[in-house]
């Protein structure tokens, strides 16, 4: 086919001369495409309008749910990290000893030192352990409390904190 043939197409959609069947077939395709019934078309449009006019989902739900989740997770973590209430804690709350600001300060000097451990050991030996003697919080007063108190008295980091 040459330049002449292309110019012979009157509207640009025709077929070259000599191919009338192809031209008819192509024309039929464009003219009788898949027709959408008017009812279907209107139904689709109505559904689209309904969807677009529907109120938007509440956008605050996501952040609120996330914040609530974080809060719950934090509460669970905090509860898990709390030391279990020991019998000694119950004992102290039920029968508080002398009101000393410092745990283990049995002589009321305002600081922990070896004399507190000595007083505790002497009380243990005499069978009258002083109140507040459960220094290590294991629910009983024994030699381990004496050692814990003495070790606390000589701890370098504790001294640095004070």
């Amino acid at each position: 086919m040459g330049e002449h043939d292309r110019h012979s197409e009157p509207d640009g959609f025709g077929a070259p001369d000599g191919m009338p069947h192809l031209a008819r077939a192509l024309s039929a395709l464009t003219e009788s495409g898949p027709a959408v019934p008017r009812e279907v078309d209107e139904a689709i449009m109505a559904e689209a309008r309904r969807s677009l006019s529907r109120p938007r989902r509440r956008r605050w739900r996501g952040p609120v749910l996330a914040a609530a989740s974080i809060g719950i997770a934090g509460a669970i973590t905090w509860l898990m990290l709390q030391p279990a209430m020991s019998p000694s804690a119950v004992y102290h709350s039920a029968a508080p000893g002398p009101a000393t600001a410092l745990a283990g300060d049995l002589d009321g000097s305002g600081q922990l030192n070896i004399v507190d451990a000595f007083i505790l050991a002497r009380g243990l030996e005499a069978g009258t352990p002083p109140h507040g003697g459960d220094f290590n919080g294991d629910g009983r007063i024994d030699r381990a409390d004496v050692d814990a108190l003495a070790m606390r008295a000589v701890a370098l980091d504790a001294r640095a904190e004070s």
């Binding site: 030192n113 070896i114 004399v115 451990a117 000595f118 050991a121 002497r122 030996e125 003495a150 008295a153 000589v154 701890a155 370098l156 001294r159």
Partner: peptide
């Protein structure tokens, strides 16, 4: 280290 706290008691 160059510092220590030592303590003891006797019953």
């Amino acid at each position: 280290q160059d510092r220590v706290i030592i303590a003891a008691f006797s019953l």
